[in-house]
Nucleic acid binder design. Structure first.
Lengths: 194, 194
DNA sequence: ATGAGAATATGATGCAGGTCATAAATCTAT
DNA sequence: ATAGATTTATGACCTGCATCATATTCTCAT
């Protein structure tokens, strides 16, 4: 589903400021959210206040469907990373979209499959692998999405929140991987080698 | 997609013996697998040989679609838990099924959403929570699927392989949860309280 | 250029859960 | 009923990462 088609269909665009919360765990899902511009993160927060980043969503992507489709309360927060413009599509409109747009349901199936792939990969890592291995797997996965020579735009804290590690451990781990030549650094940033 | 419809459509049923491997990590997906009878487990195995159970699939369920849909090699093993009868549906036939069967794609979307829900829940647990909490969350999730008064049909080893813990830790954890009254036991089995 | 806040860095200490060893209890097939 | 295999149980020790404390280096708005 491409964003312009939604605007064409008359869906309103709503602005969200950085750090605002789009939804919280326990809330009953009412919408699916299409990002026109900006970025959000989906996070769960432990009793002790530690964030785990379940996913990051950017312009052109959508989020919030799974909980809505299976009719369960959200189990994560979705928080705005950068000022964003978001189109909220109500539940019944969303179901209509799936029916009306022939290619959309296949695209949705593939999107869900991709997210499952990522989560399966990370589950294996968190369950079985040590800090260094976890980090390397995540970094390689993230690097696949950017151009050769470009730097990863995640802080060590964010890498920590995606791997279930602590900043200090990520900092030490990245140094170790770099010294072993398993990742390439440039001015403190992890970059994609050729 | 109900199994009898596949048989009706002339798909062949294939038998698999306990412990046989249906596919391995690295293989290119060619089929989706519908279970007529029996049970399989999907597991990733670490370098040190430790299994992590990504999911268990039983009669009436299907598996193997995500990797096929996004055209990536499998990242898990699927191993037969009990002698099974399984219908293999080739890639292009599977795509046809999605188109021909109007309700199937929506059912698939919901199935994928449910799996995502489970994996998100477990990721949060593995990333942030200690053994006791992890165990309780998993046990409660599993108990929701069985009748009140019935016992969980998983060994401590299997619970360990689903939580990334070790058997000894699960054994100690289950005792602790039981002594705290957070789970109910009967003759060494965890049972669903009323 | 400069200062404040964010991000990175590094050492010291503690502890949850892994590891290893060994045994008791249950289950299963004959 | 019995033996062998599987599952549960328990203690002792070890280790990787969390935790805490304290610098140093980057970033970027003014």
């Amino acid at each position: 589903m491409e964003i312009w088609r939604l605007i064409e269909k008359g869906f309103a665009v709503k602005k969200f400021r950085k750090d605002s919360i789009i939804y919280e765990p326990g809330m009953q899902p009412k919408n699916v959210y299409f990002i026109k511009t900006g970025e959000v993160r989906m996070v769960t927060i432990s009793d002790e206040g530690k964030e785990f980043i379940q996913g990051v969503f950017k312009a052109g992507q959508y989020f919030g469907e799974p909980a809505l489709l299976i009719n369960r309360p959200y189990l994560a927060y979705t928080i705005v990373n950068k000022d964003s413009e978001i189109i909220q599509v109500a539940k019944d409109r969303f179901f209509l979209l799936i029916e009306e747009e022939p290619d959309f349901s296949m695209a949705l199936i593939k999107t869900l499959s991709n997210r499952l792939f990522y989560k399966s990969m990370m589950l294996e890592e968190l369950a079985n692998e040590k800090a260094e291995h976890r980090l390397l797997t995540l970094i390689n996965y993230l690097l696949a999405d950017i151009e050769v020579g470009n730097a990863l735009r995640f802080t060590r804290q964010e890498l920590a929140d995606m791997t279930g590690l602590r900043v200090e451990t990520v900092i030490r781990g990245v140094k170790l991987l770099s010294s072993k030549g398993l990742i390439k650094m440039d001015k403190g940033k992890i970059v994609r080698a050729m």
